[in-house]
Design a protein around this nucleic acid. Structure first.
Lengths: 181, 181
DNA sequence: CCTCTCATGTAAGACGTTACATGATTCA
DNA sequence: TGAATCATGTAACGTCTTACATGAGAGG
């Protein structure tokens, strides 16, 4: 029930069509979200039926290709959104990472393979961090909350990198002393 | 497909029954997981049929209450698990937090209410951090990977607390200058 | 010419959550 | 007596992911 509200939130800034919504979510909340068209289009359809959003414009790109539908938020949509904003968020944070899930059990597998997997991950995180730092410099957004969120993404990225590098060291050191488990 | 592997991983340490599996997951991976019996029992049933696990013992507590079934991992289960361990983790990290989702859009709502919600969250995170720090001291586990994971949980907790306190300051300061959006 | 990006949409299936049913024991 | 904890399990319902179908235009 939060894709709906995220879409409503984004439509406060500007009118968007489905494809663009996915891009905006990935650019801004990429460090916490993945989203599919299989979620976006059915939700837009439903919200349109509930009159929380309207279609402002239909742009035909080709004669037979799909038309681009520009959605905008209605008064009813704004009300639903502000109600949701004021509610105290219910359940806690959820961090799900296939890498971290394997990590806890690396003691039952091959240590060299574990270090290999960690190295791959360090590489990915270094690339990601660079991209995020570049984004923060060039964007220059004026909304304080959006900026703070972007900063959190970079801070988390840095923390995970440091932690992985320290973990790598400690795992290699432990290897010379003796096997765990 | 990772609940299965998590269960198989835990059964490497010791035999467990369904109810206990939930407790162990929440204690050890509470900072990244929530799990329900509606997921655990059907998965155990399926894995039993696939002979990845076996029932070692059935303990009757009362005459008509449900018996406690102790599961242990089979050789086939160990093989499936080690195969899974060596695979490079596919898709990236996923952080889903109802609080952070609202946070980005606080600019469209009431600032005082936003600060209120942030304060609630700071309180919760302070309590959580204390518990985790106490746990780390008393547990004294010998598996390096499990320890590193627990440390990551504390580090993330600290980072989020600092970030929220800084955010709170900046939001209040911004209030005196002028409204955003 | 072939692949990539833009663009919308549906359907099937995997996965997760919530609610319910059952019943013993422990503690206030 | 009544609530809480221990313990297993199913059913219904939501949500999320993956795969597919369609088709235009741009660029190598």
């Amino acid at each position: 029930m939060s894709i709906r509200h995220t879409i409503l939130g984004l439509l406060h800034y500007r009118d968007l069509h489905g494809y663009r919504i996915k891009e905006v979510i990935e650019q801004n909340f990429g460090h916490m979200w993945t989203i599919n068209f299989g979620q976006i289009y059915p939700n837009l359809k439903k919200m349109l039926a509930e009159e929380l959003i309207t279609v402002r414009e239909v742009v035909r790109l080709g004669e037979k290709g799909p038309p681009r539908k520009l959605y905008s938020i209605t008064e009813a949509g704004k009300n639903e959104f502000t109600d949701w904003l004021a509610i105290s968020p219910e359940n806690g944070m959820l961090l799900r990472d296939p890498f971290l899930m394997r990590f806890v059990f690396f003691g039952f597998g091959d240590k060299n393979r574990a270090v290999e997997i960690i190295d791959d991950r360090i590489g990915e995180f270094q690339q990601q961090l660079k991209k995020r730092e570049e984004n923060l410099e060039t964007w220059e957004r004026n909304d304080i909350y959006v900026n703070l969120m972007a900063e959190l993404g970079i801070k988390m990225n840095r923390l995970l990198l440091e932690w992985m590098e320290e973990s790598r060291k400690r795992i290699i050191e432990a290897e010379t002393v003796g096997a765990a488990v």
